[in-house]
Amino acid sequence: MVPAAGRGERLGPGAPKALRELGGAPLLVHAVRALARSRSVGLVVVAAPPNGVAEVVGLLDSHGLDGKDVRVVAGGATRQESVRLGLAAIPEQTEIVLVHDAARPLVPVEVVDAVIGAVRGGAGAVVPAVPLADTVKRVEPAEAGRPEPVLDTPDRATLRAVQTPQGFRRELLAEVHAKALSEAAAGGGPAVTDDAGLVEWYGGQVVVVPGHEEAFKVTRPLDLVLAEAVLARRRASDGF
C-alpha cells in the first residue's frame, strides 16, 4: 500500500509531492515500481488525493508496471486515514501488508523482500532502518530564531533512522487502525507518524531489519537532486 494523498509542502509550491517528477516519471510511479519488483508482492494499492484519483490512474496506466495488479483508491485528509482506506481495498485473505512512502522512490527490492521475510518468519510488525551517522541532541524547543537548550545526548549506537516499506500481519495493522479511529472519534488518539508507531502505542512489538542508504525520503529540493543522481547512476550501470 502506498499512501500518496499528501501535499508535501516542503518541496515547495506545485504538484503534490508524490506527483513530482524524478527522471521523467513521478515519484509515485518509482515507488510503485519498487514494490512491484518483488515477486512476493501481488497487489499494490495507492491512496491518491481524493480529487486526483483519475489523474493517478492515468499516470500509472501510462507507465508500464510489469503486469502487477495496481488499484487506486481515494485517500484521506491524514496519512493514517489514507492507510485505513487503502487497507479496506486489500482482499481479506491477504495476510501480509506493506505500507510504503511514495516519497521513497528508490528503495531496493532486497529491502522489500527482507521486510516480507521477517513478517513471514513470525514478526507482527517490521521496519527497515539504518544506523545514524550524526550525533543526535535532545533539545528543549524554543521560539523560532531562539537558541534551543540541549537536554542530553542519546547513545547513537541504540538509535536507527526508520524507512519504508513497513510490513505487518494484516490483522494487527487492521486492529491498531480500528483502535486509533475509535479513540479519535472520542476526541483522543495516538500522536504517531507511522504505522509502526501505532503498533508500539498499543503495546505491540516492532522489529528492525537492515534498510538501505538509497531508500531515503525525498522531502526537500536537495533530496530530489540526490535522487536524480542515484537514478542516473543506476541507469548507467544496470539499465535501471
Rank of each mutant, 00 (worst) to 15 (best):
E148S: 02
V29D: 04
V107K: 02
V199Y: 12
L65T: 04
L28M: 00
A47P: 07
R79E: 11
V56C: 05
P128A: 13
A236C: 04
H177G: 12
P13V: 07
L43V: 10
R10A: 12
L43T: 06
L226S: 05
P91M: 13
A88C: 09
T78I: 13
L159T: 03
E171H: 15
Q166G: 15
L173P: 07
L226Q: 11
A5S: 13
L151T: 02
G64C: 00
V45M: 11
P105W: 00
H63N: 02
R169K: 15
R160F: 14
E92I: 04
L59V: 01
P105Q: 00
R39V: 15
A34E: 07
V29P: 06
A180P: 04
L226W: 04
A178K: 14
T94R: 15
E175P: 08
D194S: 11
R138N: 01
L231R: 03
V57D: 04
A178Y: 07
T164Q: 04
R156Y: 01
A36S: 09
E183C: 05
L27I: 08
D101I: 01
R84T: 02
E21H: 15
K17Y: 02
A36T: 03
G189T: 12
E183N: 06
V150T: 11
A144K: 06
G204H: 15
R220V: 15
A184C: 09
A48S: 13
V112N: 11
Q93I: 08
R234T: 01
K217I: 01
M1R: 07
V70C: 00
A180F: 09
A18M: 01
P221D: 14
G24Y: 14
R33N: 04
F240R: 08
E175N: 15
A118M: 07
P165N: 14
P16W: 01
V56S: 09
V176A: 11
R37I: 12
T219M: 12
A185S: 10
G188T: 10
P108V: 12
E171W: 15
V207P: 05
G64N: 00
P154V: 13
L22P: 05
V56A: 03
T78M: 10
G42P: 07
P131T: 02
E183D: 14
V73H: 06
A229G: 02
A178V: 10
E148R: 03
A236T: 11
T135Q: 12
R39P: 13
D134R: 12
V83M: 11
P154R: 01
G204I: 13
E171C: 12
A25G: 04
V115F: 06
G42M: 11
S182A: 14
R160C: 10
V150L: 05
D113T: 10
S62H: 01
G75V: 08
A123G: 07
V126T: 11
R120Q: 15
L172Y: 11
F240Q: 05
L181K: 12
A185M: 11
T153Y: 12
T158A: 13
L87Y: 13
P13R: 04
A144C: 04
G42L: 11
A4H: 00
A196H: 10
